[in-house]
Amino acid sequence: MNTLWLIDDLPAAGAWNMAMDQALLEYVDEAALHVLRFYRWSPPTLSLGYFQKVDERTAHPASQTLEIVRRASGGGAIVHDQELTYSLIVPIKSRWAESNRDIYEIVHRAVIDSFARRGIVARLFDDCSDAQKIHVGPLLCFQRRANGDILIGNHKVGGSAQRRSRNALLQHGSILLRRSEFAPELPGVHELTGVDIDDRELAAELSAAISQAMRLKPAIFDFSPELLNLAKEIERQRFGADSWTNNR
């Protein structure tokens, strides 16, 4: 049985978080591993979708004071504050990279099952028939709707986006646990249900459920000095650089 390598990271700045995801994408590219990483953000950060224009952030006054980072994945902007974030990286030759939908569904169904154990009813959105409308939608990802999004009632509390490289597929996404003061229009799980979810517990549950669904054996990932150096270099050259953030 192949292994799903697990990481549960401490809070870090946006540029580092994105650099580590990219480093893992390039690392998996070389080593053909499956890696699942959970992480948090400090300070709270606004991430822009890869194709979003930096000027668009003026449309959202509540997040104006936040630092920004441009993601390598597409979609809308996200206020990373009261959430659990994850990334799942699989080699392109893995059966799980065959379709974009497969790992999307695996992760989101694991989240829904985890919610259900707490008495929370959530569902996957499946009513989007016009993809074009999404690209010209609101600034914030959580105000957009795409098939496969996690909804409680009509409120989106989970979404993901992917980046395909030549030899690996990165999917990362956010689970909105509580309302952020920097995006007050978006209620989290706590506001919608009264349930307070511990992010470390949720990460552990999702690790178990996702490894089971992918039929991979879970194991703790050890960061090598090479990987950390690669992430530092990517942070310096790309995600921490104004030329990257302001390139659109």
Partner: peptide, 13 residues
């Protein structure tokens, strides 16, 4: 070039 879909961003080689 690059192409974006609802879910994924990908390079064109």
């Amino acid at each position: 070039g690059e192409v974006e879909s609802v879910k994924a961003t990908s390079d064109l080689y």
